[in-house]
Design a protein around this nucleic acid. Structure first.
Length: 662
RNA sequence: GGCGAGAUAGCUCAGUUGGCCAGAGCACACGGUUCAUACCCGUGGUGUCGAGGGUUCGAAUCCCCCUCUCGCUACCA
């Protein structure tokens, strides 16, 4: 009978920089699922890769003075290197700069255009360059990008749009009738309530503002914008052809069984991607799992915070499998997980070194000490064996059930429950006592055999999660991993096998202080690098140049234009939070002899107490507007840095309230 | 503001359709053991199951209300 197929993908990683452990987590998670499916006997195809186009990359390459292609080649190589380092067993590593991918994307774009799903229009709004996103004026936060908080520029460009309205009803129907489609299910509500039910805005799918992308072949001003390009990788990578000449591989593997992605891009995968597929008349993927994030000590990792953990650094200290174990076992199913050096040390010592490593080590040592390493099932069973055997035989089914629901952490826990039971079995049987009794030799042999057989069963199941460790254990036991169908019988370990004479320590116990020292070194090195990259180092004159902010120039105005604006010094005499809003403060501002009420989106930067008493710069003749139900009669002016930090403009010398600013 | 999730032992969390004295792991303490990586095994919690009210013979589990945390989303002059 032909094997059942399983096609799964990770998101493709954006080639703007080195991926941290959180990004790497996705690759490891995907890998463990892929390996487990293979263990189950599926014909698995796992695809991962890199997303390499876009304005940000174009700019970064220009900064470095190299071509975008050279830039992405380097980063893609680095990403692939890390995926390889952590043992990711992908079948295909796709790059969106691959020629066949680019060609198909062009064809897909053309096809959707020809059939009317893509139309040409105009995009008018505020544009955030780093995020490569357009926003409506109303979406901006203090006039800044709602995603990254950096300044946006007004822009209008001709653009192609993907029409979504034709398919939304079908998509809503699909999501409602396929509860497994969006996982975890709680995410489904977010998509429904925030996007699908209120009605979707058509998606802008081309750009004219940069060149580093796949050209729209029938309109060369445009390049294909990220989502049609990036999402298509899931079909182009396995041989989709828009003209109907898809490969056998494609026909076999599509639809995907699982798209594994970060929860932040769930929207694109559960809304835009399915609609694209509907437009292409292709079946939808069976499941999209938005995994949670790995937080460093409860915070998102960011270079500027200097708390980024990288897989290669961690692997150096703990070993690849320990890192895999940690991220797979410590991540809750649908909540963000926490990773710290301290937690890593603790888990490594208690679970890996003590429970597993020590179990294997003591078992092999006893085999050597008592029987010269030869393992024999002498068949002298006692009641106490039954429980161990029963658990060893139950465990595969339990692990399987957990994995069916992608409960990877729980699956691993089941395996370790078996290892712990083995340790208990040693105490129950007390081999060292049996060894002292000449008449108990056969019993002692049986006990050791039972242990080794149980370890083999557990370790066969462990292999998808910790492949190197499993390999090491099997090598020491002089046997090999079993398929899941071979785990239904207790006693398959060949009688008379000789285990290694010198068991290798699988996991060294770690001393927290030592590890923290290394962590400090890594952190310091990172900080130095960050400073260098961002010109924060006090060495060169470059410094000033690189800490300034450039924003896009607005069109020139006349003095008359300027003269229309009236600025005055105002004194904040009272200020309170706008209860209904997360961002607004409502201030009473004394300007000359009158008092204006002004609402500002600066709650995150100033408390009401800090506001009171400040003399600030006010645009006074702005048309009043209502914000969160409160009338605002002007605008407080602020300066803002690239991180979205705000600073109120105040007069450099004491000035009376009402003084004109001109 | 809208929608959603959550609040259980010092820490991280399990607790299906309400039912036996509310559980696990880690940490901590004590006891046992010595094959082993100072390891393993055992024992130890009087936790107001976020607050309050209600339904019920009986609620961590259902209903109402409140407080706080988190996610998405909106407003952001």
């Amino acid at each position: 009978m032909e094997k059942k197929k399983f096609y799964m993908t990770t998101a493709i990683a954006y080639t703007s920089g080195k991926p941290h452990i959180g990004n790497t987590y996705e690759a490891i998670l995907a890998d463990s699922i892929a390996r487990f499916k293979r263990l189950q006997g599926y014909e698995v195809f796992m695809q991962t890769g890199t997303d390499e186009h876009g304005q940000k990359i174009e700019e970064k390459a220009a900064q470095k003075g190299i071509t975008p292609k050279a830039f992405v080649d380097e980063i893609a190589g680095e990403i692939k290197g890390i995926w390889d380092l952590v043992g990711t067993s992908y079948d295909k590593f796709i790059r969106t700069t691959d020629a066949d991918h680019e060609k198909q994307v062009q064809k897909i774009f053309k096809k959707l255009y020809d059939q009317g799903d893509i139309y040409k229009g105009h995009y008018e709004g505020m544009y955030c360059t780093p995020c490569e996103s357009f926003f409506t004026a109303s979406q901006l936060v203090d006039g800044k990008c709602p995603d990254c908080g950096r300044p946006c520029q007004p822009a209008k460009e001709e653009a192609y749009f993907l029409k979504l309205s034709n398919y939304t009803d079908r998509l809503i129907e699909h999501i409602n009738t396929h509860p497994e489609f969006i996982q975890p299910e709680s995410r489904k509500n977010e998509m429904m309530n925030n996007f699908l039910l209120p009605g979707l805005q058509d998606l802008c799918v081309s750009r004219t503002s940069f060149k580093w992308g796949i050209p729209v072949d029938f309109d060369d001003k445009h390049v294909v914008y990220v989502w049609i390009d990036a999402l298509s990788n899931y079909i182009t990578g396995i041989g989709y052809d828009c003209d109907g000449n898809s490969t056998d591989q494609f026909n076999k593997f599509w639809p995907a069984d699982l798209h594994l992605i970060g929860k932040d891009i769930l929207r694109f995968h559960t809304i835009y991607w399915p609609i694209m597929l509907m437009a292409l008349d292709l079946p939808l993927p069976k499941q999209i799992f938005g995994h949670p994030w790995l937080l460093q000590g409860g915070e998102k990792m960011s270079k500027s915070k200097g708390n980024v953990l990288y897989a290669d650094d961690l692997a150096k200290v703990f070993g690849v499998d320990a890192v895999r174990y940690f991220v797979l076992h410590e991540m809750p199913f649908d909540n963000d997980g926490v990773i710290t050096w301290e937690l890593l040390v603790e888990r490594c010592n208690s679970e890996l070194a003590n429970t597993l490593g020590n179990l294997v080590n003591r078992t092999i040592s006893m085999s050597n000490k008592y029987f010269g390493g030869v393992v024999t099932d002498a068949g002298v069973a006692e009641d106490v064996d039954a429980e161990l055997k029963a658990l060893a035989l139950e465990t595969p089914g339990k692990v399987l059930a957990k994995m069916e629901n992608l409960r990877v952490a729980d699956a691993i826990t089941e395996i370790f429950t078996l290892y712990k039971r083995c340790n208990k079995y040693i105490d129950e049987t007390m081999p060292w006592a049996l060894a002292k009794d000449e008449t108990k030799q056969a019993r002692l042999q049986t006990v050791l055999y039972n242990l080794i057989e149980s370890i083999c069963i557990g370790t066969s199941l462990l292999a998808p999660f910790m492949p190197e460790t499993a390999e090491k254990i099997f090598k020491q036991l002089n046997t090999s991993a079993r398929g899941i169908e071979e785990l239904d019988t207790f006693g398959k370990y060949a009688n008379g096998t000789k285990v290694t004479e010198a068991p290798e320590i699988l996991f060294q116990r770690l001393v927290l202080e030592d590890v923290l020292k290394v962590a400090e070194e890594i952190k310091a090195a990172q900080a130095a690098e960050y400073a260098k990259e961002n010109g924060l180092e006090p060495v060169e004159e470059k410094k000033e140049e690189e800490t300034v902010i450039d924003i896009e120039a607005k069109p020139e105005i006349t003095y008359d234009d300027f003269a229309k604006l009236q600025f005055q010094v105002g004194e904040i005499i009272a200020c309170e939070e706008v209860k209904k809003s997360k961002k607004l403060l409502c201030s009473q501002v004394k300007i000359g002899s009158q008092v204006k009420q002004i609402v500002s989106g600066i709650k995150a930067h100033y408390t009401p107490e800090q506001m009171v008493g400040k003399k600030v710069m006010v645009l006074v003749n702005l048309k009043p507007a209502t914000l969160a139900g409160i009338v605002s009669e002007g605008m407080l002016l602020c300066a803002e840095d690239e991180n979205g930090e705000l600073a109120l403009m105040t007069p450099e010398k004491t000035m009376p309230s009402g003084a004109e600013i001109c």
